[in-house]
């Protein structure tokens, strides 16, 4: 069974010595974030993220289903992650490692449990019909920082995604195709970009001051990433408008303060 490659003594010694001299093996500063590259696919909800050499593709899709009986007013939102052998030879198909479970839980915590997506807005007819939004995370290349990469990717894909518009007349539900009516974006309450999620399961104690300085640094990075994401989204939107010869149509209601 292939395993995660172990690092040799030479590498361990070298990395430690380099860090003492303030050098990192990949040429970054000690506190520098990896280079982020975001691109969107032809369809809505397809995002490709490169974080250094790690590469993640997320596909968001939606279908109409019956809501869970205990949450009749809420839609369904699920994230599936699978670490396949494409990412690294250490991963196998169908055998989930501890790392994979931890990773899935972290992403789940960061996005689903932080209520990033307004699940009530996914409800069509209470107790009968709702949207089931699903984000499939595919890891194409594994070079560390999988949590960061997948979080950014899922958030980007969710903001990029548009679902078909729906109109309800009494009991009759009509789903309009993408050409018939302008598709609507998901209602996203906040963008949980997780750069430095603190997940500490045991280990050494950390001083509060260090923790605070880490958090401030993380905030800076998050701002940069969010800005990049917004710029890219806008760029993509413009490209679409030009390509499809659309007017800047919008299904949003005018909101008055």
């Amino acid at each position: 069974m292939p395993r995660e490659p172990e690092y040799s003594n030479n590498e361990k010694a070298f990395v430690l010595e380099a860090i003492q001299q303030g050098l990192r093996v990949d040429g970054r500063q000690l506190d520098e974030f990896r280079k982020v590259d975001i691109s969107f696919g032809e369809e809505f909800g397809l995002t490709d993220i490169k974080l250094g050499r790690t590469r993640v593709i997320v596909r968001v899709s939606a279908e109409v289903t019956k809501p869970y009986p205990d949450q009749p007013f809420e839609g369904i939102f699920s994230i599936t992650t699978e670490l396949g052998p494409m990412a690294s030879p250490a991963f196998e198909v169908g055998r989930s490692t501890e790392q994979e479970v931890l990773l899935a839980r972290l992403i789940e915590k960061a996005i689903r449990r932080s209520n990033a997506i307004d699940q009530e807005s996914l409800c069509i007819v209470a107790g009968q019909k709702c949207w089931s939004v699903r984000a499939d995370v595919h890891f194409l290349d594994h070079d560390g920082a999988l949590v960061d990469a997948s979080c950014i990717a899922v958030v980007a894909a969710l903001t990029h995604f548009r679902r078909p518009d729906v109109s309800v007349e009494g009991e009759k539900v009509t789903i309009h195709t993408l050409t018939e009516r302008v598709p609507v974006p998901l209602s996203i309450l906040h963008l949980p970009i997780c750069v430095c999620q603190i997940s500490k399961a045991g280990g050494m104690a950390i001083e509060a001051v260090i923790l605070m300085s880490c958090a401030t640094q993380a905030l800076l990075v998050v701002r940069q990433v969010t800005e990049l994401l917004m710029n890219k989204l806008e760029e993509d939107q413009e490209k679409r408008v030009r390509r499809d010869n659309l007017l800047k149509a919008s299904a949003e209601n005018v909101r008055r303060a």
Partner: peptide, 15 residues
Amino acid sequence: TSKAGGFGELKGGML
């Protein structure tokens, strides 16, 4: 030739 020909343990350095 039973000579090392450059092969053997690599000491120090980085991969």
